[in-house]
Amino acid sequence: MKTFLCNRCAQLVFYENVRCERCESLLGYLPELREISAFDDAGDGRWRSLHPRANGALFRQCHNYAVENICNWMIPADSPDTLCRACQLTRTIPNLGEPENRLYWYRLEVAKRRLLYTLGELGLEVTSRDADPEHGLAFEFLADDSDGARVMTGHDNGLITLNIAEADDAHREKVRTSMGEPYRTLLGHFRHETGHYYFSQLIENEPRWLEPYRKLFGDERADYGEALNAYYRNGAPADWQASYISAYATMHPWEDWAETWAHYLLIVDVLDTASTYGLALLPGDPREPTLTDRTPVEDASFENLMQRWFPLTYALNSLNRSLGIADGYPFTLAAPVVGKLRFVHRVIAAAGDGKAREAAAPSGLASRDEPAADQPASSDPAVTPRRQFDGDKV
């Protein structure tokens, strides 16, 4: 995530901000420019962008910004849309009759917009289900039924479902502890589930990637239901860290891909933020990790990313321990995991829109590690019919 400034007073602002704390200008995100902009009120619900690249263009607030206080994206003033591109992807929102659900909805949309920013920076196309009913992406934010029926977070042919309980910090931490997971976040869920979506878009029907994928991750044609039952019955192999990024990745090749994909997005996101902020590690002791490389993530080779990642995570965990909180990066990357991450890097590079960081090998092995709209409906159970999805993370 890059740094953003208020165009009126040059105050540093965050991606989620809706108002400048210094000059009180309205702020909004312009997805066409991938920039936060300050705005002047132009009347009639229109706002004039002060961002120099917008050339004084007029915009309107997304309905979920102006009315629901959930969003901060802007829409061109002459657009017929009432929802921004991000909010159009959400097909079902939580039942707002439950007081806490508005907060959960807000947290879900914040995480989703961060995901969309990263996908955009990587040049990965995001098409809505309305624009492409067969291959588009959509989200549903659902709650467990009062009769005890549970909503499973998962992916089904481009439809990503998240249980809104994951937006409850206490609940999510309880599940994380009970599952023995070192890391569980809303953003992590979004990254993981889009991994399933992009497997179908980039790998499943691409011979140049499918066979190399199977060499690294295994044969995805293995029965998913049987693998799921076996995992929850027996758990992960004792030595899973030697070949997998997480215990859950051992369950099935699809899950190994999705977990690795999510981890790659995490690495790219954190490195992008660190380099944009000019973060450097200049220890007095030459034996300690050093980090001075600020190569933009979109221009970096995979080797460059890894060389910068390890010293950064050492510093991150050291800072967290000084604060008395858990490690921010509770993972180890064995050589086979690095090989899988390199494969994800090459697939994304090949799919990018010209911002690919390196030429992707069309086939074969590249190294010894690896081969080259309207407002959504409420999710009130009385209104929204329950759907069944393939099991994923509980």
Rank of each mutant, 00 (worst) to 15 (best):
M1E: 04
K2H: 11
C20Y: 08
L26A: 01
E32W: 03
A38H: 09
R46A: 13
W47G: 00
R48L: 09
L50W: 00
L50Q: 11
R53K: 13
A54N: 09
G56S: 10
F59E: 00
R60W: 10
C62Y: 01
E68F: 14
A77V: 04
L83T: 02
R85Y: 08
C87G: 04
N95M: 06
N95W: 13
G97K: 11
L108S: 08
R113C: 01
T118H: 04
L119P: 07
L122A: 10
G123R: 02
R129H: 15
H135V: 05
L137C: 08
E140N: 10
E140A: 14
L142V: 05
S146C: 07
R150M: 13
M179Q: 10
P182M: 12
R184M: 02
R184E: 01
G188D: 03
G195M: 12
F199A: 02
Q201R: 15
N205P: 00
E206Y: 14
P207S: 06
R214A: 14
R214L: 07
L216G: 05
Y224V: 11
G225K: 04
L228P: 00
Y244W: 15
A249N: 02
W254D: 02
E255V: 04
A274W: 04
L279V: 09
L282Q: 07
D285T: 03
T292C: 14
T292N: 13
R294M: 08
E298L: 05
E303K: 15
L305K: 06
L323N: 11
D327L: 03
P330M: 12
L333C: 09
V337I: 14
R342M: 09
V344N: 03
H345T: 05
A351H: 14
K355F: 04
P362M: 05
P362A: 04
L365P: 06
A372K: 12
A373S: 14
A373N: 09
A382E: 09
T384R: 14
D392K: 02
